[in-house]
Nucleic acid binder design. Structure first.
Lengths: 224, 224
DNA sequence: TGAATAGTGTCTTTCAGACAATATGCC
DNA sequence: GGCATATTGTCTGAAAGACACTATTCA
């Protein structure tokens, strides 16, 4: 901050937050994208986001965008990385702080906002071409998500409060894109001491009912 | 980015980069701080940084600040986190993107720049009070550094190209603030297959000379 | 030969991963 | 009884951690 007195010498860039909203739907990892209603990249899909207002923090801005886009609050939200290449937006210099949110599908109510014609969930394996450098941002987010479910309990924010262990396993499989061994998975999950049995069972379908579990804490906990 | 057409409705904040420059000196983990020559927080110590210019990327800005402050280039540099609370700078809204650089002590040439009266290395265990929210930024950086040396080879950027295993161990001990077992440390480091013997020995002091090692790659590699 | 650091091996414990049979409910 | 999913344990190999003695150089 050695040059702060020279503020006026340097033009101020626009600052936005972009929020990658992940959810599990139909046994797939999906992400919310919005269709741009205006140029540039009109009619292309993009990561939802918007300007940071002068009286709000970056996290508040991300929370607001998340809520505007999906009606959801009180979910897992994490700052990822800040992208600021001078030419990433053709109109003017725009620096964007990216966030990732994890949301249970049953809470999402997609709503198109002013400059957007449509908001939709996309399978992360089948994304359309994205506007700006949003593919790069998406790739970064997915990498972070995959890394982080390995050593934290953040999946609590992708599930309903109570769930079967097989559902939990499915979330891991869908995010990591690989099959896991049922016995090893359950052994490990239970040994972490982050889950507790709800006492209730899930009678559903013509088969043995499953115990419903829940996370002891619905906040970020690092494994060991 | 659903509201980008409304640019003018939102005032643009100033954007700076702050760079935490870590080095190992005198068997301690140290960080470069600069003494502020102007208000606010005049005469207090701060993390070096400055405005992002309109034609440079964030990383270029960080690289430039690093070079201006220490004369160093081509070292490990990583973006950390972006701090943007509305009131973090009392003058105007300033959003800062923090970076961490790891520099071998023998490359550092501290030079005070325009708005700074002095630049100095501080033991990370004995920091003075810091300006702005810089203590928070420092804490974040130190946490990241400690985490990251556990699973990457980034210490290559804190050492001279060739080093004794005991020096390498000392770096880990100083960063992690704990003693390590010599046999286990060497066993693990060598088993990672990231080091190679230089063939040369370090004759120094009245004792058995040590083999000098070097990293096979002087770029980031994740363990396993 | 004494001081100082370099260099080395074994045992135990823990954790990850491979692997298949029985249990329970519904129809 | 048949179907579908839930639930459970053992063995093996790899890695981490505890732990102490010998080797080499210089003064």
């Amino acid at each position: 901050m050695n040059t702060k007195s020279n503020s006026k010498k340097y033009p101020h860039p626009a600052v936005t937050v972009d929020v990658l909203i992940f959810t599990i739907d139909d046994n797939q990892l999906k992400v919310v994208l919005v269709k741009r209603g205006i140029p540039p990249f009109k009619d292309m899909w993009a990561i939802p986001g918007g300007f940071v207002r002068s009286d709000e923090s970056l996290e508040q801005a991300a929370t607001r965008e998340l809520s505007e886009e999906t009606g959801v609050s009180r979910v897992y939200l994490e700052q990822l990385y800040t992208f600021g290449d001078p030419k990433r937006d053709p109109r003017e210099r725009v620096i964007t702080v990216s966030y990732m949110a994890l949301v249970p599908i049953n809470k999402i109510k997609l709503s198109a906002s002013t400059d957007v014609t449509e908001a939709k969930l996309f399978d992360t394996g089948k994304l359309p071409p994205l506007a700006f450098d949003h593919k790069k941002i998406f790739d970064y987010a997915l990498k972070r998500l995959r890394a982080k479910i390995e050593y934290t309990n953040i999946v609590y924010s992708l599930l309903t409060p109570q769930f079967r262990l097989s559902q939990l396993q499915k979330v891991y499989e869908v995010v990591l894109q690989k099959k896991l061994d049922k016995r090893n998975f359950r052994k490990r999950m239970l040994s972490l001491d982050l889950l507790k049995s709800s006492g209730k069972k899930d009678f559903q379908g013509a088969h043995r009912p499953a115990m419903l579990y829940q996370f002891k804490k619905r906040e970020v906990v690092f494994f060991v």
